[in-house]
Simulated scan of single mutants.
Amino acid sequence: MCDCQYNKKTVLADPAVLAALDSKGVVTLRADWTRRDETITRALNALGRNGVPVYALYVTGRPVQLLSELPSRAEIEDALSRL
């Protein structure tokens, strides 16, 4: 199982993570790069990445905050605490 599928079934499905995202008003977006879409490729390049998974928090007026490829519940909660 690739990292993105593992993440989707574990930490990103964790009720505590989902509640934390919701409490901060985070809108989640998922880009499927299965077919190597050029728009997604450009977005990855802008983040200095050339593959997936990539997890990033975008907040208006702040630099993009990149998370690890296998973020833990604690890492996500820590990132959200700084919003």
Rank of each mutant, 00 (worst) to 15 (best):
W33S: 08
A46D: 08
A31F: 10
K9N: 14
E38S: 15
D37T: 09
Y55H: 01
P53M: 04
N45F: 01
R49E: 08
V11A: 04
V26E: 09
L57R: 12
K8P: 01
D37F: 13
G48T: 06
P53I: 04
A43P: 01
P53C: 00
Y6I: 12
V26C: 10
A13F: 13
D32H: 11
A31Q: 01
T60I: 14
A43V: 09
R30L: 12
V17F: 03
A16Q: 11
P15T: 02
G48M: 07
P53G: 00
G61E: 14
T28H: 02
G25R: 10
L29M: 03
R62K: 15
T60D: 15
Y55T: 00
I40A: 07
L12V: 00
G48P: 08
L29I: 08
R42E: 12
T10D: 08
L57E: 03
V59K: 15
V27C: 07
Y6V: 05
V17Y: 08
T41V: 11
K24N: 02
L12A: 04
A43K: 06
L12K: 03
L21C: 05
T41I: 02
D22N: 15
E38M: 10
R42G: 06
P53V: 00
W33F: 12
R30P: 04
Q5L: 07
T10L: 03
